Simulated scan of single mutants.
Amino acid sequence: MSPRWEPDPDVRRGNHVIYHLHAHLVFVTKYRREIFNDEMLTRCEAIMRDVCQSFEAELREFNGEGDHVHLLVHYPPKVALSKLVNSLKGVSSRYLRAEYTGRINQIGTGSVFWSPSYFAGSCGGAPLSIVKDYIENQKRPA
């Protein structure tokens, strides 16, 4: 690293890579049913934290409302985001359906907990305009 750079604990390193990847994920319950209460959200966070750990990722933030959850995940480049999402939704669905059967059956989502769709947005780092300017202003050899 250049001596002019301050070490940043959020910038992670591998053998051949230096990375700083964050994704904002949003998962919605099937039919946007108001399933979650505080206890279920707390349990959902613990489950998703464990899943992230198994992918060598870190769940930085988690919160939600009755019908959806938001996650901020710091993940390594070797992880395909779609595989992480699939695991997060699949594992959490199995555990939550098993542990809160009465509540989930009463609300009526059928055999599916999450909607099949999700939101994923990259975040963190410099704004795109600054990155574009930085790339544009590189000193290209003549």
Rank of each mutant, 00 (worst) to 15 (best):
R94A: 04
L59M: 15
Y95G: 00
I47G: 12
V69Y: 11
Y31V: 00
G64R: 11
S54M: 08
L59F: 13
K83I: 09
N86L: 02
T42P: 01
K30D: 00
L88V: 13
L41C: 06
S82Y: 13
C44Y: 11
R94M: 08
R49I: 08
D50R: 15
V91G: 01
A23L: 12
V28N: 04
P76H: 11
L96W: 04
P76V: 15
E58I: 12
E39G: 01
Y95N: 02
V91E: 03
K78D: 11
N63E: 03
V69P: 08
I35L: 06
D38P: 00
N37H: 03
E34C: 02
G66S: 09
H22A: 14
G64S: 10
L41N: 06
T42N: 09
P76W: 11
S82H: 14
A46H: 10
Y100S: 07
K83R: 14
S82P: 12
S87T: 14
G64E: 12
N86V: 01
V69N: 07
V28I: 12
S54D: 11
D50E: 15
E65T: 08
L59W: 13
K89S: 04
E58W: 04
A80P: 04
F55K: 06
S92H: 03
C52P: 08
V73R: 10
V85Q: 03
E65Y: 04
S93T: 05
N37T: 02
Y100G: 07
L96C: 05
L25M: 03
V91H: 03
R49G: 11
H20V: 00
D38Q: 02
V91Q: 03
I35F: 01
R49K: 14
C44P: 05
Q53D: 07
Q53R: 05
D67E: 15
H20R: 01
E34F: 04
D38Y: 00
L88M: 14
A98H: 08
E61H: 05
R94Y: 05
E45T: 07
H70Q: 07
C44K: 05
D67H: 14
Y100K: 09
V69Q: 07
A46L: 15
S87G: 04
S93N: 02
A80V: 13
V28H: 05
E58H: 12
R49Y: 10
V79M: 01
M40K: 02
F62V: 14
L71Y: 14
P76Y: 12
P76L: 13
K83G: 06
V85F: 05
K89N: 04
S54R: 05
L71K: 14
H70V: 07
E45W: 07
V28L: 06
F55M: 08
G66V: 07
A57Y: 14
H68M: 11
K30E: 00
F62M: 13
L88S: 09
G90V: 07
L84C: 11
C52I: 06
F27V: 12
N63G: 05
E39A: 03
L21N: 10
L88N: 08
G64I: 13
D50W: 15
